[in-house]
Design a protein around this nucleic acid. Sequence first.
DNA 1: GGATGTACCGGAGGGTCCTCCGTTTCGCTC
DNA 2: GAGCGAAACGGAGGACCCTCCGGTACATCC
Lengths: 185, 185
Amino acid sequence: MNPKPTRRDALDNRERILTVAREAIAASSTASLTAIAKQAGVGIGTLYRHFPTRETLILELYRHDIQHLIDRAPVLLAEHPPLAALRLWLEEVAHYGRLKYGVAEVIHAATDGGADDEYFAPFVAAIDVLLKAGAADGSLKSGIDPEDVLLQLSVLWRIDPARPGSEARAGRILELIVDGLRATP
Amino acid sequence: MNPKPTRRDALDNRERILTVAREAIAASSTASLTAIAKQAGVGIGTLYRHFPTRETLILELYRHDIQHLIDRAPVLLAEHPPLAALRLWLEEVAHYGRLKYGVAEVIHAATDGGADDEYFAPFVAAIDVLLKAGAADGSLKSGIDPEDVLLQLSVLWRIDPARPGSEARAGRILELIVDGLRATP
DNA sequence: GGATGTACCGGAGGGTCCTCCGTTTCGCTC
DNA sequence: GAGCGAAACGGAGGACCCTCCGGTACATCC
């Protein structure tokens, strides 16, 4: 897919596509790929070779941001007890996803496809660290599959942000999710 | 939309579309509307006038089945304590959604659009009855928004049924959802 | 039974996604 | 620096969704 774009023109094109896409997606998260390709001065075929699906492209755009979220997990864990850390982290993810819609879309896609772990796995691993910590201190159930949690989380971006009360609803549902993860005494 | 298709030809067309669609969707849940229209011998425009969106059409196809699910809620509630009834009902819905993919798609759409309550509201009401009963006997939290539960439930159809272990995963997640709804002692 | 208004029809058309494959261009070798 | 094979390009094309609007045919009223 994108292991080693060795050729100069290929690299140039890749960069150009990303630059244009960043702007275009920021302006309208549903910007058409055709338009992006045209504006980047490449054929639609070229765009698709570099980024086989819309998600691949978006994923690349937000790579840094996603990495940042992943890195936050251990930080929160150092500063708070596991249950609180989990909650805070999920809130950050949810909030970020609402802000930059792209991230949400990517996670959404990840829960679909399943595989393509290169990007997906670290995210799941971050969840797993939080879950394990919570299981260790008895505040969370043990043996929870982190992918299950991710899937549950993905429901949050399905809340239409335009509808009134969407923020509150997201908070409520997050609460329900976390409560479901807690150890039953 | 579909209040009173008064004219004879309109009614005929509507029936014909439904008949064809039932078969086509059963054969392949992603059957194209263009194809359905063609096979029903109507223009694509006609199809869209009768069923403004893909979901409207599917909804009509599965109307009976959905009603059946709704009716099951009070029955289960009469036979089981509220918490068990809720769990069983959710299992039935989940199972049914996995079987006839259409139903899942409809619920999915409902959680998107939100409104269009004509079909949507009874379903939410069914959930509400279960929740209220559980709140009354203290097994469930009180004040839960049934739409929130529906939204959470919708995650279950996002599990790819082709992947191995999908059934088990659905079970696990359902468990998490229900646990999140239980009253915290 | 004709006339007439309106409810309904049909498909062309604009937009999107993605695939496929003939053509071009790069980078390496001699 | 010429030649060559593979890597990358580009856009036509097929599929789909949905909209729009000129035309058709039904039901009703005289």
